[in-house]
Simulated assay, not measured.
Amino acid sequence: MSFNLANKSFAERAEIEDEKARLFELWQTNLAKAKGEAARMIGEKPRRKGKWAEWVRAELDGMTPPEFANMVRSEINKLMAAASAGKS
């Protein structure tokens, strides 16, 4: 399977570019919301203790579209990494 766009037909390239544009627009429109959701979930960690990871997975599984859930997951990972780096 080739990822070189030059090897794809015009229609395939256009479809790829349309999807990239859609994802970029979704990212631009929802980044602040994703950061807010991630902060909310991190804020639940002390209260939920050992069940927190399970709760986060359930919350993420319930989010739509899946691309938004991935954005929130990414922001959670960034916040957790920053918190770990701060403890070192």
Rank of each mutant, 00 (worst) to 15 (best):
37 E>P: 00
38 A>R: 05
38 A>P: 06
38 A>L: 06
39 A>F: 00
39 A>D: 08
39 A>H: 00
39 A>M: 00
40 R>Y: 03
40 R>Q: 07
41 M>L: 15
41 M>H: 12
41 M>R: 14
41 M>T: 14
41 M>F: 13
41 M>K: 12
42 I>R: 09
42 I>D: 13
42 I>K: 07
43 G>M: 06
43 G>N: 07
43 G>D: 11
43 G>C: 09
44 E>S: 11
44 E>G: 08
44 E>I: 02
45 K>L: 11
45 K>M: 14
45 K>A: 13
45 K>P: 02
46 P>H: 02
46 P>L: 00
47 R>L: 13
47 R>G: 10
47 R>H: 09
47 R>V: 09
47 R>C: 02
47 R>I: 11
49 K>A: 15
50 G>M: 09
50 G>Q: 11
50 G>P: 02
50 G>N: 12
51 K>E: 12
51 K>P: 03
51 K>F: 10
51 K>W: 05
52 W>C: 11
52 W>H: 11
53 A>C: 09
53 A>K: 13
54 E>M: 04
54 E>C: 08
54 E>P: 02
54 E>T: 06
54 E>G: 07
54 E>R: 05
54 E>I: 03
55 W>R: 13
55 W>I: 09
55 W>Q: 13
55 W>H: 15
55 W>E: 15
55 W>C: 12
56 V>A: 13
56 V>C: 14
57 R>Y: 12
57 R>N: 15
57 R>T: 13
58 A>W: 06
58 A>H: 10
58 A>Y: 12
58 A>G: 11
58 A>R: 06
59 E>T: 14
59 E>D: 15
59 E>Q: 15
59 E>H: 12
59 E>M: 10
60 L>M: 08
60 L>K: 04
61 D>I: 04
61 D>W: 03
61 D>V: 08
61 D>C: 04
61 D>K: 08
62 G>Y: 09
62 G>H: 07
63 M>V: 10
63 M>C: 07
63 M>R: 07
64 T>D: 02
64 T>P: 00
64 T>A: 04
64 T>V: 08
64 T>N: 05
64 T>Y: 06
64 T>R: 10
64 T>W: 06
64 T>S: 07
65 P>V: 12
66 P>H: 02
66 P>D: 01
67 E>H: 08
67 E>C: 01
68 F>H: 02
68 F>S: 02
68 F>K: 01
69 A>K: 00
69 A>T: 04
69 A>C: 00
69 A>R: 00
69 A>E: 01
70 N>H: 00
71 M>K: 02
71 M>P: 01
71 M>T: 04
71 M>H: 01
71 M>W: 00
71 M>R: 02
72 V>C: 04
72 V>K: 02
72 V>G: 05
73 R>A: 10
73 R>K: 10
74 S>Y: 05
74 S>E: 07
74 S>H: 08
74 S>Q: 09
75 E>H: 07
75 E>I: 04
75 E>V: 05
75 E>L: 04
76 I>D: 04
76 I>G: 09
76 I>T: 05
76 I>K: 03
77 N>A: 14
77 N>E: 14
77 N>C: 09
77 N>P: 05
77 N>T: 12
78 K>H: 14
78 K>N: 14
78 K>F: 14
78 K>T: 15
79 L>A: 07
79 L>N: 04
79 L>F: 04
79 L>C: 02
80 M>G: 08
80 M>T: 14
